[in-house]
Amino acid sequence: MTQPKAISQIVDNANENIVLSTLKRELSQLAVQQKISKTGLTFLTKLQKPDFNTDIALSTITWI
């Protein structure tokens, strides 16, 4: 079995946002294929919830 890309990115010290994006995409693909556990689905749901504090901070930095 091959290692998920998100794990490889962690090993390679990739940017946290890139790793999270890859992780969401890979978990979403598993969910669509119905190959995800209940725990994995709960984790994906938590990852997809908006974090308004972070989102506002990032958008503020973008506009400065």
Rank of each mutant, 00 (worst) to 15 (best):
K46F: 14
L58S: 00
T60K: 15
Q3I: 13
Q33I: 08
L27P: 00
N13A: 12
K24P: 00
W63D: 10
E26Y: 00
I10A: 08
E26H: 11
T39N: 03
D12G: 00
Q9I: 01
F43C: 06
Q34R: 15
Q3P: 03
S28A: 15
T22W: 01
A31I: 12
K38A: 15
F52W: 10
F43E: 08
W63T: 15
D12I: 01
I18L: 14
R25I: 07
L47V: 02
V32M: 14
T54G: 06
L27Q: 12
S28D: 13
N17W: 13
Q33D: 09
I36M: 05
F52M: 08
K35V: 00
A14C: 04
N17A: 14
I10P: 05
L47K: 01
V11S: 11
K38M: 10
I56W: 03
L41E: 12
I7F: 13
L58C: 02
I56N: 03
S59I: 12
E16L: 05
M1E: 08
L44S: 05
Q9F: 11
I18Y: 04
K46R: 13
A6M: 10
T45D: 07
L58N: 12
S21N: 11
K5D: 05
S59T: 12
Q3E: 12
D51N: 14
S21V: 04
N15H: 10
N17Q: 13
L44F: 07
L41R: 08
P4Y: 02
L20R: 14
K38E: 12
F52R: 13
L58A: 00
A57K: 11
A14K: 10
Q29K: 15
T45G: 10
S8W: 02
I64D: 06
Q9E: 06
K49R: 02
I18H: 01
Q29T: 14
T42R: 11
Q33N: 11
A57L: 07
G40H: 01
T54V: 12
Q48G: 03
Q29C: 04
I56F: 08
L44T: 01
A57V: 06
